[in-house]
Amino acid sequence: MRKDAPIISCFHLDVSDPTRKRKALDDVSIEVERGTWIEIVGPAGCGKTLLFSVLSLRAAPPKGTRLVVAGRNLDKMPVVEIADMRRLMGSACTRPILLDDRTVLENLVVPFVVRGEPQMALDACETLLETCDLMELRDVPVRELSHQERIAVGVLRAMVGRPAGIFIDSALDTLEQRLQKPLMTELKQCHLDGSAVVLMGYEYTENARRGRRFRMELGCLTEVETPVIVPAEISEVSEAGGAR
């Protein structure tokens, strides 16, 4: 694994959708460098979730796609090592998979357990909950959470332990302000700490100025030029806490 290599690079990703007689993803190439902030927007059904699944290594890419994770070609990587690569990533979507019979804290600790770092897990998770003003959810079983709170817990779990890459698919768009604002602040903190953040949604956030912006339509991904940020705007964005 190369420390300076992009977290993930994807070249010529094609997924056909015969039911619609067009490609669900059409020759998509993107490179997620370490410490970068990327936002991908597009309407529903444009292929964001498919791209999210491939980039977050939830799904194997179609044959013929070249996927390079941390400098290593995924095609030539044994399954055991692909699992290791997943440890570099945290991901969340609008329907997060949570362990319903366990508490919020137990759900947040899972990435640490899988990564074999349980020592600081409890402190890190409690700090994260406190920072995001969600400490009251600490011992609540997930099955008792509202839909919005479930999404928030999913996003928190993606950030916990500061993984090298954080991928969020449309989750923040659906959250109400009281949940969205602290999560966005924490995401910015992760970015400042060196994590690459990839946000997918319907509209750009104010933080889009921090990095690269893409637009996705009918399966095609095109980069949009990012306006230059003047220093005054940076401080405004920081004070605003990332709210749209």
């Binding site: 977050s56 997943r86 440890r87 570099l88 899972v110 899988v114």
Partner: peptide, 9 residues
Amino acid sequence: VLLMFGAQG
């Protein structure tokens, strides 16, 4: 969840 965060098969 375990697979998502890198557990081995």
